[in-house]
Simulated scan of single mutants.
Amino acid sequence: MPHPAVRLVAISEEPLSVAEVVDSLDDPTAGGLVLFVGRVRDHDGGKGVKALSYSAHPSALDRLAEVCDRVAAAHDVTGLAAVHRVGDLAIGDLAVVVATTAAHRGSSFDASEALIDTLKAEVPIWKHQGFTDGTEEWVGAP
């Protein structure tokens, strides 16, 4: 059974919506909402990025839900949401959106940091980057 604070967990091939994430956390008891948006940037490791694609293992959605449940249980939050994009993305596209709400901002900041850090460490979503110099690399792949 998911933690009651977990409101939205998704992996999508469609563009992500910050408004959808924020709306999913609407709660009059929440005095703080902390939002993190990860965007595709035009560089990495000193190289120019020209193309980027995310791939997810079939277990990724279940793993993301588990991470959300653990973070919600470990922090005093009223709401938590996490969505990640897969497929081909362009520079500037949203790759990941996470947010938490809590009665007070400190709990929400702590939970949001734990959520994005744990998601990146544990959810099997891999990034393939193509660089302007013709090289490429996988990030996070086993």
Rank of each mutant, 00 (worst) to 15 (best):
T78E: 04
H75V: 07
H75D: 07
S59D: 14
K50Q: 09
L33H: 06
D69G: 01
H43Y: 04
E113H: 15
L89I: 08
V21S: 09
E66D: 12
V40N: 03
H84F: 02
E122F: 13
C68K: 01
V6N: 00
G130D: 15
A65T: 14
A82V: 08
V22A: 12
A30N: 02
S108R: 06
V21P: 05
E137N: 00
R39W: 04
L119T: 12
Y54H: 08
G140A: 05
G140C: 02
L16C: 12
I125M: 07
R105M: 07
S59P: 02
R41H: 00
A51H: 14
T29F: 13
R41M: 10
Q129I: 07
A121V: 06
A19R: 14
R85H: 05
T101D: 02
P124G: 03
W126D: 02
A99D: 06
S107R: 02
V49D: 05
L35W: 10
P58Y: 05
V97N: 07
V77T: 11
L115H: 08
A30L: 06
H128F: 13
R63Y: 04
Q129S: 11
V49F: 07
A19F: 03
S12F: 10
L115G: 08
K47N: 14
P142I: 12
G46Y: 02
I116A: 06
S107H: 14
A19P: 03
G46N: 01
D62W: 13
L33K: 11
K127G: 13
D93V: 00
P28I: 05
T101K: 04
L80R: 01
A73G: 12
F131E: 03
E136A: 14
A10F: 02
T29M: 14
L8I: 03
R41W: 08
T100V: 03
P124F: 00
P4T: 01
E66C: 03
G130I: 14
V86S: 00
T132E: 15
L16D: 11
L89A: 15
R39S: 15
A65L: 09
E137T: 02
V49E: 09
T100N: 01
L8W: 04
D76A: 13
T29N: 15
F131P: 07
I125Q: 00
I11D: 07
V21G: 01
V98C: 12
G79Q: 04
A10S: 15
A30G: 03
L64H: 09
E137V: 04
D44M: 09
A103M: 09
A19Q: 13
V139R: 03
S112A: 14
V67K: 06
L33W: 10
D88L: 02
G32H: 06
G46T: 06
E137W: 01
E122H: 12
A65Q: 15
L80W: 10
T135Y: 11
V139E: 06
A30M: 03
T135N: 13
G140F: 01
E20W: 09
I91E: 13
I125K: 01
A10V: 10
G48N: 00
T135S: 15
H104D: 12
